[in-house]
Design a protein around this nucleic acid. Structure first.
Lengths: 138, 138
DNA sequence: TCGTGTTTGTTCAGTATCGAACTAACATGG
DNA sequence: CCATGTTAGTTCGATACTGAACAAACACGA
């Protein structure tokens, strides 16, 4: 594989993600969710703590502080005291937070499906197979 | 494909691209290139004009103005008068611009190739075909 | 118990980004 | 030729982001 070849694939892939994300913008707006906030909300339950979120999402700690402040203000996430380590803020999504997250994920999946609709069934299966081959750490 | 499955695929893909991009950060630094600037530099020759760049990259016109200003200041891109339409700035990479772009693409490809290595040549070609079909609905 | 070194999350200040308004240059219809 | 509408690129003001410094809490060997 030539160098330009790999880079081109990278760019196409990047473009695909951007297109899908842009398509979700309206739904996210209705949910009152900023794009960046969504990524944080989505990982709150699996990461539990701000530091872990920053590491997982590869964004600065200062940014996590901001997104969390907004999510808490919106009532989508709540902070709890961690009795084991008073420095840490244990995080958890609220009921409403879970609902919003699910709606956002559905929107993302729906838009992805629309784009995928440009392919016929055979090609969709093929693309999914290739992406899985790339992404699954198997 | 279930809704969550599609979203999961999307998120994995997003993560993959971020990791690759982060891996390139040092090289880009050495080249004196900001990440966002790179995307602009990379498309200058194919898009020719700022408006086309904004559309292709899906970023605001105002941002394109800024990135171009920086690229021009660094001597990587130059603006020319378009005799056909005096509103437009025809853009072109300089010799140094082409060199820097190639180095950046090489870095990107090198990192991405590690992942792409999971596919054989036939599958990579297939993947590119499918991504093109998705993104260039001709 | 200290002293020293980490880690956690926040704050602050400087930079980056971008929506909206703007100017200049075309295009089209009359 | 003019009126009207559209498009190209820039500027400006307001917001978003983040590196660096910070305070608090932990860890652990001496």
């Amino acid at each position: 594989m030539s160098s330009d070849d790999a880079a081109q694939l990278w760019k196409l892939n990047q473009r695909l993600l951007t297109v899908v994300m842009n398509s979700c913008a309206d739904t996210f707006d209705e949910l009152g969710l900023e794009t960046k906030e969504f990524f944080v909300l989505d990982e709150v339950d699996t990461c539990q703590y701000p530091a872990a979120l920053a590491a997982k999402l590869m964004i600065p700690k200062a940014s996590v502080t901001m997104y969390l402040r907004s999510l808490v203000a919106k009532g989508l996430v709540r902070r709890e005291i961690d009795d084991q380590d008073l420095r840490r803020h244990r995080l958890a999504t609220t009921d409403r937070g879970r609902e919003v997250r699910q709606r956002a994920l559905d929107a993302l999946a729906a838009e992805f499906a629309i784009i995928m609709g440009r392919l016929d069934q055979r090609d969709r299966d093929e693309l999914r197979r290739l992406l899985h081959a790339l992404l699954d750490p198997s």
